[in-house]
Each structure stands twice: as structure tokens, then as C-alpha cells.
């Protein structure tokens, strides 16, 4: 059984059909890349999975449980975290407060402290800035905070929406290294990216989304050599 199973998912914004019945799955331990052009429906897909948007048809299963109709705030405690597009850190709150909000659904203080140490270890830069308000962090630091905050819920799967957006090449590499590390430490990753080259280089498998449909699927290395993908997404 796959950790995350999406089946014939359809999503509308009013009368606009943003997802036209997509199906895909994410196995435990994988990094799955979801790539596509602007407006393809990547963010819509993630928002629907985490319950921020309602599905019109189809189903979403997490670990075998149907979560299609579960409210967003319940899904976190089921083991799914979401690093949203544009980071969406709480700008007025401090780095520490942001991180602790990531652990909002958890009760055990000792376990939270252990996760916090783990996040500090992965993002030493955050540890140096605990008292700083999140709005004053640089873009790359905010991305790290958004990722750290998601890790604070100790998720079994983490969804990331364009973590490399707007970052300098150096930061991009650092972020992708960290994604790999997080995955090696046991967290499954569903990665949405416009930077297809980078995403395919760390993913196991990938899906290509075009105007609400999945048009291609396969091993990341295969897709990397696919003529269509090369032309449309890798700029070759």
C-alpha cells in the first residue's frame, strides 16, 4: 500500500476546472517530483491533499485512510506536513515561535524538544536567529524556517511547494541537499518544483502536470532523458 494515493482527483475554482482527474501515488521513503509549467495545477494539487481546498471528485488516501474530506487542521496530526508556496512563515512571530507552532498538534514536551534539537542540527542558521522575527529573515532563511516548522510536526510525509523559488543558486543547492537529508532520515517527500532539473536529480520518480492533467510519469532518470521533458522543462 502506498503512503499517499491520489485517485481521479478533480478540483474546481468556481467553474474553472483546475485538476481534471489526476491519479498518482507516493510510496514510503520516496522523493516524488511533481513538475509542470506555471498554472499547471501543482499548488492546487498540494492544497487539495492537505485539505485547504475541497475536492469535487476522486479520493485522497494517506496510509490507507481516506482523508479527502478531512479538515486541514486534522491532517497534520495524521503525519502530513506542508511547506507552502511562498513559505508563509508567520512574519510577526519569532523564529522560535514559528517552530513551536509547527509542533502545535503534539503534546509530549520531551519529544518536541528532541525534534527541535534535530531541526537546529539541520538548520544551524535558524538556531542563531531564534529571537528574530521571521519577517526580517532573508528569503533563503525563511525557506529554511518553513521547512523546519514543517519538520516540527514529525511528519511521515512532507509536501514542498517550490522550495527553490526566488533563491540564489547557492541557497538552491543547500535546500536540495537538505531535502535529500530529510528523506534519508526517513521522511517521504512530495516535491513540487519549477526547477525541473534539480528536482529530477534528487527524485526517485516524477509526474509531469499540464493544465490539470498528468501527461507523463516515470523514473526521474528516465524523464530526465525524455525528449519532451528536455524540450519543455529542462530548456535543452
Amino acid at each position: 500500500m502506498a503512503l499517499l494515493e491520489i485517485d481521479k482527483l478533480e478540483v474546481y475554482y468556481g467553474s474553472i476546472n483546475a485538476l481534471k482527474g489526476i491519479s498518482f501515488n507516493v510510496e514510503r521513503g520516496e522523493i516524488i517530483a511533481l513538475i509542470g509549467a506555471n498554472g499547471a495545477g501543482k499548488t492546487t494539487t498540494l492544497h487539495t491533499i492537505t485539505g485547504l481546498l475541497p475536492a469535487k471528485k476522486g479520493s485522497i488516501k494517506l496510509d490507507g485512510h481516506d482523508i479527502t474530506k478531512a479538515p486541514a487542521h486534522r491532517i497534520v496530526s495524521m503525519g502530513m506536513a506542508h511547506v507552502p508556496e511562498g513559505r508563509r512563515v508567520f512574519a510577526q512571530l519569532t523564529v522560535y515561535e514559528n517552530l513551536m507552532l509547527g509542533a502545535y498538534t503534539r503534546k509530549d514536551k520531551d519529544e518536541i524538544a528532541a525534534t527541535l534539537e534535530n531541526v537546529y542540527y539541520r538548520f544551524p542558521r535558524l538556531k542563531e536567529r531564534l529571537k528574530q522575527t521571521a519577517g526580517t529573515l532573508s528569503g533563503g532563511e525563511q525557506q529554511m524556517l518553513a521547512m523546519g516548522r514543517a519538520l516540527m510536526s514529525k511528519p511521515s510525509i512532507i509536501l514542498m511547494d517550490e522550495p527553490s523559488m526566488g533563491l540564489s543558486p547557492l541557497y538552491v543547492s543547500e535546500i536540495f541537499d537538505i531535502i535529500q537529508e530529510i528523506n534519508k532520515a526517513g521522511t517521504t517527500v512530495l516535491l513540487v518544483e519549477q526547477n525541473a532539473k534539480k528536482a529530477l536529480s534528487i527524485a526517485n520518480r516524477a509526474y509531469v502536470l499540464e493544465t490539470g492533467n498528468i501527461v507523463l510519469a516515470g523514473d526521474a532518470s528516465e524523464l530526465m532523458n525524455n525528449e519532451q521533458v528536455k524540450k519543455a522543462y529542462l530548456g535543452e
Binding site: 492537505t50 485547504l52 497534520v76 508567520f90 512574519a91 510577526q92 507552532l101 502545535y104
Partner: peptide
Amino acid sequence: TKAGKAMLACSEDRGAAQLMGINV
């Protein structure tokens, strides 16, 4: 308090607050 922080989070970004597990 945790409930107070949840209020601050909701006031800043309701969607992101939900992603933290906060019942808006």
C-alpha cells in the same frame, strides 16, 4: 499561551495556521 499563539498565527495567515494543525 498556545491558544494565544494560535490566535496570532490565524490573524497573520489563516491557511498557514491550518497547516500547523490549528482549528481556525
